[in-house]
Write a protein that binds this DNA or RNA. Structure first.
Lengths: 245, 245
DNA sequence: CAACTACGTAAACACCGTTCACTGACTCGT
DNA sequence: ACGAGTCAGTGAACGGTGTTTACGTAGTTG
């Protein structure tokens, strides 16, 4: 049956335990409380044993961040699956609201993944591959952005006119990624349906969505917002409106 | 001459020393490196002595955050003073660019002040007075927003139409603060010149500016942006354009 | 000059990350 | 089946941390 040896089975089980307890500490008491000794105490082993699984506390936190991303992506996927496949607008709403709700419900995890300097969290491989941490979440983001593009003729007013020249190269690279995502969904499109202006607009939308969520999580709005939800929704409506919805 | 007694003079000097060394540790090695013992070592005293000045490490970090805000505000004020008083557009550019430049140059300080959960940084007094930390910075933000309003007839397309009802009360409160700021500058205005739609737009502008800066500091753009500066400037141009500049 | 205030200290406690030598159970080739 | 090898886990140790406590002592004040 099980190919794995007993030792290997025990190892993966212990590792799962470690991650689960570390996650609980993060959620309940914040990053600083994610202590090797505290984790070990919860799991029922001693702190040095953790070095059989991770190079250091930082390494563990890095993996934890990846887990968080994976779970967030799964949650957003679940939200997405409950929406009519043809209603792209509702899909965007679902994912964005899901992201906001998740961030507010898990501020510590949000802070770890979305508000940590790169050198703190590392994740910068030798070949300069950035944002490994956000990979899973990036997948969902791309997924939705891809659906949005594939299933909707973009309005003409998203011309490439006011896109700064210096961004053309970067945006073109992102455009290729987006198009590849769309094509992976079985929809054949080319660059003509996704002008750089639209790519730029998607990026700007991420800036606004992230900005609102982070400001809300960190409580840094310029005035007390007693009910930020309609503000978020209204922003989403405006973003979608600018894309022709 | 000096009203203060010798002890008092020594005390303020020591406190200044503590803050300076703590600040240096924060800038150079990050929040976790701001250690009572490390500070004490640099200052030339022992760790428990710090408890004569602060209730705890958290308390010290809170005060440090206020210092950071004050310095940021001073820096932005300096930037502002170099701009033609009548050129509001240039003033907005100066402050926003200054904010971005400061954040990129001082990521640890930015993280402490603008990306810390409120319970981590506290600053929530008993009477629920939030965002004490950002007060000084908020002053500058309000200052510029006030100038922007006072010196420029806002376009009509910033109607209150698409402002969610639920936000009216909060926005009205912010509107009063903005108007008070403007009036403090000697310009008499009333609510007619600053519709809620404009207040809303100012808030949305903060969302975008903050979002961009934070994404850049934390490296969480959906793709590698080799040169984010034109992106930021183009965003500012769009924000100003929407306000009729 | 005596009484008092308060800054700073040393010692101690309970934590922390990390290293190291070591044990003992599991695995595998013969 | 058994010996050799692997490796998860341990306990002790080192140097670091925040914080409390009792205490000395310099500065202040009557």
């Amino acid at each position: 049956m099980t190919e794995a040896t007993r030792r290997e089975r025990l190892r993966v089980e212990t590792e799962r335990d470690i991650r689960r307890q570390a996650r609980a500490l993060l959620v309940e008491h914040g990053r600083d409380a994610v202590t090797l000794r505290a984790i070990a105490r919860e799991v029922g082993i001693t702190a040095p044993a953790l070095y059989r699984y991770y190079d250091s506390r930082e390494d563990l936190l890095r993996r934890l961040a990846e887990d968080v991303c994976t779970d967030l992506a799964a949650e957003l996927d679940a939200d997405l699956s409950r929406i009519d496949e043809d209603d792209v607008s509702a899909q965007v709403y679902a994912v964005c609201r899901g992201f906001r709700r998740w961030a507010l419900a898990h501020p510590q995890e949000f802070t770890l993944v979305f508000a940590s300097t790169e050198d703190t969290l590392g994740s910068c491989g030798p070949n300069g591959d950035r944002s490994q941490v956000g990979d899973q979440f990036g997948r969902v983001f791309l997924e939705v952005a891809g659906r949005l593009i594939a299933s909707h003729p973009l309005p003409d007013d998203l011309g490439d006119d006011d896109v700064p020249e210096e961004l053309h190269a970067d945006l073109a690279a992102f455009q290729q990624i987006l198009l590849a995502t769309v094509n992976d969904r079985g929809v054949a499109v080319d660059g003509t349906v996704l002008p750089l202006g639209a790519v730029y607009h998607i990026t700007q939308s991420w800036v606004r969505i992230y900005g609102h969520v982070a400001l809300e999580v960190f409580g840094r709005f310029p005035f007390a917002v007693s009910n930020p939800e309609p503000m978020f929704d209204s922003m989403l409506a405006q973003i979608l409106g600018e894309m022709g919805f």
